[in-house]
Simulated scan of single mutants.
Amino acid sequence: MNKIDTLFNRARQLRLYGLTAHWDEIATQDWVPTVIRWEEDERSDRSLLRRMRTARLGHFKQMADYDWKWPRRIDRATVEELMTLAFMKDATNIVFIGPNGVGKSTLALNIAYQALIRGHSVLFRTASEMLGELAAIDSDSLLRRKLQYYASHDVLLIDEIGYLSYSNRHADLLFELISRRYEKRSTIVTTNKPFAQWSEVFPNAACVVSLVDRLVHHCEVVAIEGDSYRFKEANERSIAQRQQRASHQSGETEPAS
């Protein structure tokens, strides 16, 4: 395919019908590649902004700022491989397991952001927000549409499974959603509970074993061990503030010369 034909196909994909209708007249003009590139760039930018609003990732620490030395245990090589998004090719899921404050959400959000900027549709929800919304719907047709909405995104990030306990209805809804995405699209989950303790998150729910089975069948599980980094930062701030106050008070009590 020659350069002119390539430009024509790009213009047709952009639905620039005015240009394609008069292609024989303008195909060799020097400005045509520039106009097509401008249109492609503008649409790409608008698409990214739209997907970012939909994703609702919020503010999060970038990978460059992540302190890999803080966790006592983390498989950095696996996380860095996940950042390449190769897992999406076969709809592999990701589960980050670890205690509070070790960076599970930070890592998950960075992977989701990589998917977003590479053109994929992404959605972020906390487990309580998503399951509460679904459980409150009393219309079957509306519930089906909402489940399809959650199931349709290329990457769905469900944050903080395990911090609250849920009813059987919540468990059934999560199972339904994971089943809809199973082997079709990737789901990222963060949890502070090992899978053996998910029965505590969904007590008495009959579908817990099946839910975990569907989630982990094609899955990268990243276990993180360590103390809370947020607690470390809070403690450091507290020490710095005490030192600052002590220094200020010491300056105020110095005798005048």
Results as ranks from 00 to 15, higher is better:
195 F>L: 06
169 R>S: 13
204 N>D: 14
178 I>D: 07
164 L>N: 12
206 A>N: 14
155 V>R: 02
163 Y>E: 04
195 F>H: 06
164 L>Y: 13
167 S>D: 09
150 Y>H: 08
201 V>W: 12
183 E>S: 08
167 S>M: 00
185 R>Q: 08
156 L>I: 03
184 K>D: 12
173 L>G: 09
159 D>L: 11
148 Q>H: 01
164 L>A: 10
168 N>D: 13
154 D>V: 06
203 P>V: 03
172 D>K: 10
140 D>N: 06
140 D>V: 05
175 F>L: 12
214 R>M: 00
160 E>Q: 11
200 E>C: 07
213 D>R: 04
151 A>E: 03
138 D>A: 01
135 A>G: 01
181 R>G: 05
175 F>W: 10
155 V>A: 03
137 I>L: 03
149 Y>C: 02
195 F>D: 02
157 L>C: 09
201 V>T: 15
145 R>A: 04
214 R>T: 00
136 A>H: 08
183 E>C: 03
136 A>V: 00
171 A>S: 15
190 T>Y: 08
196 A>R: 15
166 Y>N: 02
158 I>Q: 08
189 V>Q: 07
138 D>G: 05
139 S>G: 02
179 S>M: 03
165 S>D: 10
157 L>P: 04
172 D>E: 15
149 Y>W: 08
210 S>A: 15
177 L>C: 06
211 L>T: 03
136 A>F: 06
162 G>T: 10
155 V>K: 01
160 E>H: 09
198 W>D: 04
157 L>Y: 09
142 L>A: 13
143 L>H: 02
184 K>R: 15
168 N>I: 12
152 S>G: 04
212 V>P: 03
207 C>F: 03
183 E>D: 11
206 A>Y: 10
138 D>V: 01
211 L>M: 12
152 S>A: 14
169 R>P: 04
143 L>K: 02
178 I>A: 06
191 T>C: 14
194 P>H: 09
180 R>C: 02
163 Y>N: 11
174 L>P: 10
171 A>W: 12
185 R>T: 03
165 S>R: 13
144 R>D: 07
148 Q>A: 00
145 R>C: 00
168 N>S: 13
149 Y>M: 04
205 A>P: 08
187 T>F: 11
151 A>H: 01
173 L>N: 07
202 F>G: 10
142 L>D: 12
176 E>K: 14
179 S>K: 01
205 A>E: 03
149 Y>V: 01
201 V>G: 12
138 D>Q: 12
153 H>T: 15
192 N>S: 10
167 S>T: 14
160 E>D: 14
154 D>Q: 14
162 G>W: 04
193 K>V: 10
194 P>T: 07
178 I>R: 09
140 D>C: 00
168 N>P: 05
196 A>W: 05
164 L>G: 01
209 V>H: 15
154 D>R: 14
175 F>P: 09
211 L>S: 05
144 R>K: 14
145 R>K: 12
195 F>G: 06
141 S>Q: 08
139 S>D: 10
212 V>W: 04
196 A>Y: 12
199 S>Y: 13
206 A>W: 05
161 I>P: 04
163 Y>L: 13
176 E>W: 11
214 R>Q: 02
207 C>I: 11
147 L>E: 02
189 V>H: 02
174 L>R: 11
201 V>D: 13
161 I>C: 05
175 F>C: 11
173 L>F: 08
208 V>P: 02
188 I>K: 06
186 S>W: 09
189 V>F: 10
140 D>Q: 07
195 F>R: 04
167 S>Q: 02
